[in-house]
Design a protein around this nucleic acid. Structure first.
Lengths: 204, 204
DNA sequence: GTCTATATCATGATAGAC
DNA sequence: GTCTATCATGATATAGAC
């Protein structure tokens, strides 16, 4: 029986996640990860042969997390408006809990997109089902006609970008007042929902 | 008289811009910059004492470029709808011409936001004049009431995010078909304009 | 399995000849 | 101003003791 849940490997993964997310692949130092895990630097290489492999392990975990299971919401048996609202709520909830993920993911994907390919294949991500549901609602006359891709891009952009640009928004809009910044993020879900509904829902 | 416009310093700046934008501060190698400039690595240190100083020179030039002069549009004597349309057109035009800027700026600002502070002070960026104009239009009943910050955030997000997330969009939406990707970007301006107008303009 | 010590390598920076 | 050669540092990786 395993009483020691925080094994060395777990400690490394936890430490690596913290360091990689805050410093990125290039900026992260193996020494710092070792220190944070409370172990020797050489042990990192014992458990994960290279920095690259350690990074991939962390990145896969993060990105799996960053693609929330919105497919289920989109395919559920509720109105298109309810679907839009639930997706936005799910995204903003996730981002408020993990505000540094977008910056990290964007940074690493611009650095080396090849990692994404494997993950997309692995998790079978398929945006077509989402676009199909949007198109159906348009054909039913519930929302205005526009390319489903662009509608999805608009919603995702409004959700994620303010978190990806956190340092800019924090400084320019709020002079680094973290309370005001958090209040702003707390308002985003309702704002985006109302904005999208105004933009696309056809009133009876 | 200077006939030789591409002086060594110019060649370094041009090469450094390319390498820094594609690799970032951490990923960029002085050797690569030297190679691209067709000169010796030691010469970089002759012209710019450190890598940090060379980077700062490039970054200032880029970010000055990334904050388009939208203040003039916002304060001009045209309708709020025309202002919104012109700002979106200006942003998308800029981004189509320089699609890698958003990724670069986001990456570096997440890495070290302090550089932004100096630049904001230096260029006297003041978003309040933009918010004031938005608020006036709301008070005149031309657009619906909502916090001006969020309206600005929505518009900027829809413009910039699809470019910042270029590798993701390219692969997931278009299977790296660059023609289709460029067509998508070409449609963005009209899509966003219509979307924002539907969302906020009050019909008479 | 865990750790110490060390080899190997890459990179930013400098010294000095021309 | 430009080059070759070299240094100093820090980081990855491995060998081998316990």
């Amino acid at each position: 029986m395993e009483t020691k849940k925080d094994s060395t490997e777990d400690k490394i993964l936890e430490a690596a996640k913290n360091v990689f997310v805050s410093k990125g692949m290039e900026g992260a130092r193996m020494q710092e990860i070792a220190d944070e895990a409370g172990i020797n630097k050489a042990l990192l290489h014992y458990y994960f042969r290279t920095k690259e492999r350690l990074f991939e392990a962390i990145f896969a975990e993060i990105i799996k997390f960053a693609f929330p299971k919105i497919t289920r919401i989109v395919q559920s048996d509720i109105s298109i408006v309810a679907k839009i609202e639930q997706v936005i709520d799910a995204y903003i909830d996730l981002l408020i809990k993990h505000p540094f993920i977008p910056g990290f993911v964007l940074k690493e994907l611009n650095r080396d997109p090849s990692g994404l390919f494997k993950l997309v294949v692995k998790f079978g991500l398929n945006p077509q089902v989402i676009f199909d549901e949007i198109q159906l609602a348009m054909d039913r006359g519930e929302i205005i006609q526009m390319p489903p891709r662009h509608l999805a891009a608009n919603i995702i952009s409004m959700c994620i970008f303010p978190f990806a640009a956190r340092p800019i928004i924090s400084f320019i809009l709020f002079k680094d007042d973290q309370k005001a910044l958090n209040a702003f993020y707390g308002e985003r879900a309702d704002i985006i929902k109302q904005f999208v509904i105004n933009a696309v829902v056809i009133k009876k």
